[in-house]
Design a binder for these strands. Sequence first.
DNA 1: CGTCGAATTGATGTCATTCAACTACAGTGG
DNA 2: CCACTGTAGTTGAATGACATCAATTCGACG
Lengths: 198, 198
Amino acid sequence: MEKISFATYLQEKIDLDEKTIKKLYQKLTSEKHLKNEVLLKPGEVCSHAFFVEKGLLRLFSIDEKGKEHILQFAPEGWFIVDRSSMYFKETSQYYIDAIEDTSMVYINDQFLDFAGQKSPEFRKYNERLLHNHIRHLQNRINSLIAASAREKYQDFIALYPDLTLRVPQWMIASFLGITPESLSRVRRNLAKENFRPR
Amino acid sequence: MEKISFATYLQEKIDLDEKTIKKLYQKLTSEKHLKNEVLLKPGEVCSHAFFVEKGLLRLFSIDEKGKEHILQFAPEGWFIVDRSSMYFKETSQYYIDAIEDTSMVYINDQFLDFAGQKSPEFRKYNERLLHNHIRHLQNRINSLIAASAREKYQDFIALYPDLTLRVPQWMIASFLGITPESLSRVRRNLAKENFRPR
DNA sequence: CGTCGAATTGATGTCATTCAACTACAGTGG
DNA sequence: CCACTGTAGTTGAATGACATCAATTCGACG
């Protein structure tokens, strides 16, 4: 996958002049984290949103039995954050970690305030992001309550076509709320039916 | 349940002077709808958010097999809206209808703009609502992928203690993504174990 | 009282989980 | 370079959870 720099991303998404972008960008720190590094743990307050420039992050919980449940993946060009923890300053219930070596931009409250003051466009875009997030969550809930394991997997492929190859299968299962074995069988059946050579 | 007027609600939640509240409130229309009336249908753009003063609304989808799947309940003091449809002006996939006779306040874009200009407090509160919404959705997803039918029901009771009595059981089942029969059995088992006289 | 939808119950079926065995493969150290 | 180890993925068999179908009861309301 191609690297997506945050500066380029802002230019595309928001109509800002170069000068403002530079001003914003130099307020930010960009960091690299290796695979398996943990960026947020339960009990901590989520103090940053992460914009993924290159690599892959995930947001997940661990239940009483020690099982992981993945709420979100964030490949290049995505944000990941426990928004309610960050906004309300509550301790989080969730983990964020790196599935691949990942370079990301750290975004904190000060930056958001600063950028919002500098540019009303940025403010608006931020609002847009929130609504986009809500749309995603809502669609996901609908899929979870309405669909079978098979359909959930198909919804997943439609949503993240590229991730199907990049993410280990047991993580996809964990995202869908099914076991790795079940997903394996779902895939076998799908392959049987839609057999197509490549 | 007690009626919650929107004016009172605003006073409690946002620090506004009486004059501003009046100014805002007279921009709004309050309407009553009878049980079973439909306020939003798939294919329409969701042009209003509804604040429930008295009664009960629901947001739901219907799948290809004709089954309903309930995404949200909104009793007194709650907002209900298909946010992504309203914000992005896309046609909705969802229904909103009245479970009980309901009086509600219609809130549209013009009002939000107007109120946002009049009062930065209002703007902030609006942002707060968005984050609150996201928190809810995220917790719900976590419950849906991590919990058994029984645990989902317990999560539901914890979240909406009063609704347990007000909402028909088959709707709760539809909210949880299980069948009415399953919910009935879950309840029987819970009752057997935690037997307590009332 | 009669009707209709909601809820319960039982019998049965199906889908997904669990547990265990096995394969494939990547990484590690001898 | 090759065993050794650990993790991912697949497969099978048994189990369990939830769904489906059908019958019955319950309760609200005209």
